[in-house]
């Protein structure tokens, strides 16, 4: 428990630093929220003055940050300058799409990457291994947005199996709509997992306990899952967790290509519009996601690998 408490304290500190940095960097970057609030048409001197007063744009930076922080700790993240809607509902509108996409992609990534990497390692040097390694290399080399366009042309336009854009309304629609984006996102990531898995499992085949397990006549499922997978799980868990965190915050190119209004797309447009309340909330959310995922990975280490557990207790 002390371990978890320590991690949470560190996380809070991290989020604090993150919010100061984002606030300062965005304020220092060129452009002014005034432009977003007044729109692209000519503005009058009166409305410019009114906007600056209403949004405290002329207050010194630390004062503005303190005001934001005061509201934020009370759970009030303000309203978007662009849509005038509360930041929480802006994000709540988009999170389900991104979370669905991220979850779907990570399932595909692991479903393909783990077995392929494991098999490649166990059959090291065989044509199968070479085939898998080469495919992974190719998959890694295709940028997700190029993959998106390829999939769109192939499966959505030519074959008409999948919709071209949007996220759908019902659960079934959501699954159809997110399939191509999830594949586009998972392609490169599966390749990373394949390589990671292969590296982690390379010397597995030669291990005495694997040979012994097989000699004992251990069942196939137990051999692969209980012995092979479990012994190589740690590095793969780490990579998988990081990929999930990345998908939750930065699937921008794929989101754009498939016309999905997700969190990645929101972040980029909010930065462009200097929509500070939205950017701040998103950065904090991203930070919290990374911290949470890392914490979960560490906890998973304890569950998966008894050696870590004993080490932790001893320490």
């Amino acid at each position: 428990m002390a371990f978890v408490a320590r991690r949470l304290a560190a996380a809070l500190l991290l989020l604090g630093v993150l919010s100061v940095l984002t606030y300062a960097l965005l304020a220092l970057a060129p452009g002014d929220p005034e432009q977003v609030l007044l729109g692209p048409r000519p503005s009058t001197a009166e409305s410019r003055a009114a906007v600056r007063a209403q949004y405290h744009l002329d207050d010194p930076l630390p004062v503005r940050y303190a005001a934001w922080l005061g509201d934020a700790v009370r759970g009030d993240f303000g309203a978007s300058l662009y849509s005038r809607e509360s930041v929480t509902s802006v994000i709540a509108d988009r999170l389900p799409v991104t979370a669905g996409l991220a979850g779907y992609a990570i399932v595909l990534t692991l479903a393909v990457g783990l077995p392929a990497g494991l098999v490649a390692a166990m059959r090291r040097g065989s044509p199968l291994d070479r085939g898998i390694t080469l495919s992974a290399l190719v998959a890694l080399a295709i940028p997700p947005f190029a993959m998106s366009i390829l999939l769109l042309y192939g499966f959505a336009v030519t074959l008409g199996w999948f919709p071209v854009f949007g996220a759908g309304e019902t659960f079934a629609e959501r699954v159809t709509h997110l399939t191509l984006p999830a594949i586009a996102l998972a392609t490169g990531q599966a390749a990373v997992v394949v390589r990671q898995m292969r590296a982690a499992a390379l010397d597995l085949a030669g291990q005495d306990y694997m040979t012994f397990a097989r000699a004992r006549g251990v069942g196939r499922a137990r051999y692969w899952f209980g012995y092979a997978l479990r012994n190589t799980a740690l590095p793969v868990l780490t990579v998988g967790g990081l990929l999930l965190a990345a998908n939750l915050t930065g699937a921008l190119f794929v989101e754009r290509a498939f016309g999905l209004h997700g969190v990645g797309e929101l972040l980029v447009s909010a930065v462009g519009q200097k929509d500070l309340p939205v950017v701040q909330a998103l950065v904090l959310m991203g930070g919290a996601v990374v911290v949470a995922v890392n914490l979960l990975i560490d906890l998973a280490y304890l569950a998966v690998d008894p050696r870590v557990r004993h080490g932790a207790v001893a320490a």
Binding site: A156, V157, G160, P163, F165, R256
Partner: peptide
Amino acid sequence: AISDPETLRLAVSSGE
């Protein structure tokens, strides 16, 4: 809203 111009064209072309 479809922000990518290419996707927008594909969406009209496919009849979506």
